[in-house]
Design a protein around this nucleic acid. Sequence first.
DNA 1: CAGATGTGAGAACGGGCGTTCTCCTCGGTG
DNA 2: CACCGAGGAGAACGCCCGTTCTCACATCTG
Lengths: 191, 191
Amino acid sequence: MAIDTATAQRQVLEAADALFYERGVQSVGMDAIRTASGVSLKRLYQLFPSKDALIEAYLHQRDQQWKDMLAEHVDAATDPRERILAVFEFLHTWFTQKDFRGCAFINSFGELGAVSPRVAELAQQHKAGFRQALTELAAAANAADPQQLADHLILLSEGAITTSAISGSAQPARRAREAAVLLMQVSLPAD
Amino acid sequence: MAIDTATAQRQVLEAADALFYERGVQSVGMDAIRTASGVSLKRLYQLFPSKDALIEAYLHQRDQQWKDMLAEHVDAATDPRERILAVFEFLHTWFTQKDFRGCAFINSFGELGAVSPRVAELAQQHKAGFRQALTELAAAANAADPQQLADHLILLSEGAITTSAISGSAQPARRAREAAVLLMQVSLPAD
DNA sequence: CAGATGTGAGAACGGGCGTTCTCCTCGGTG
DNA sequence: CACCGAGGAGAACGCCCGTTCTCACATCTG
């Protein structure tokens, strides 16, 4: 008997995730995903009717995983400032993973953003979600202007992600944390 | 008679620059460059022996243009702090250009960094050049730790570039400038 | 003028890839 | 047992694309 539908889907998504993220979306053929997942092309196409659909599912999954990992780090702290700094701890542990290759959304956007409105849209949504989360953290820390602090922290985070991806070092997370501390000194009310 | 070699090369590079930047490197075929440049495939291939070579030339050219534009903005100011802030003015004017689509190096790296060591290398060099420039600006402003201030400013800049590219707004340049002002308040000696 | 050279336009070649199709096997059902 | 539908393996199809080749023409040299 063939593999259970749910596990087939999971295997395909796992393979797609690993390959798309590692090599970029366009460099990975459906055949590579078929081989890596062990799911036949026929099944693959009945689970995901096109490569575009699979790309979309891949990005969806990344978004969810990313949010979960972020929340996990943030929720380990209770002090509002530490919850903000936890974002940068999260970045550091992410950057240290040996398969780290930057933000899947930034990469996909660079590859396909101009050519696939759907990819551009998903990237925007992902970043909007991050902004939302940071704005809430900034508000919880009593920032005078939570949106402003959040935006500053976002710039540091995004900058750290791309700098770390290109340089291959996790140091940018440390630097971003440093800068965040300084910004919070100025933007948050004294204790 | 055929077109002069120098102008043919210039036309090819112009076309490649526009197309690669706009649509991404992999989405643009040699035929599109041929059509846009008006240079025959034969000539094109004797000017650039492969698409890879053309991509490399494209990145080289982007690097040079970018440095020139940056220097132009920075050199319009004399006060060390204003020279640093000029970086963010530059970003803002860049983001406002109607064809702005992020950093060519970040985009190419996302597309091909894992698959083409040469592209990864060129991206690293480009970013190293930017870091060098910012470190000098920070030192000239008497930062206690010029490398640290430079790294913080880089994070803001890179974050602004990707955020602006994805969101389609130039606002991140303003936000980055704001944050830079705050960081300089803390990192630079008082007047 | 003869002939060699270089060029433009575009066809041709070779390979890769997204997607579909063929054929065969196998488990379940009446 | 005979049949049916689903699924696996992989061939096949169409298309795109990087690169090379053909051919006709125009220009230069002697």
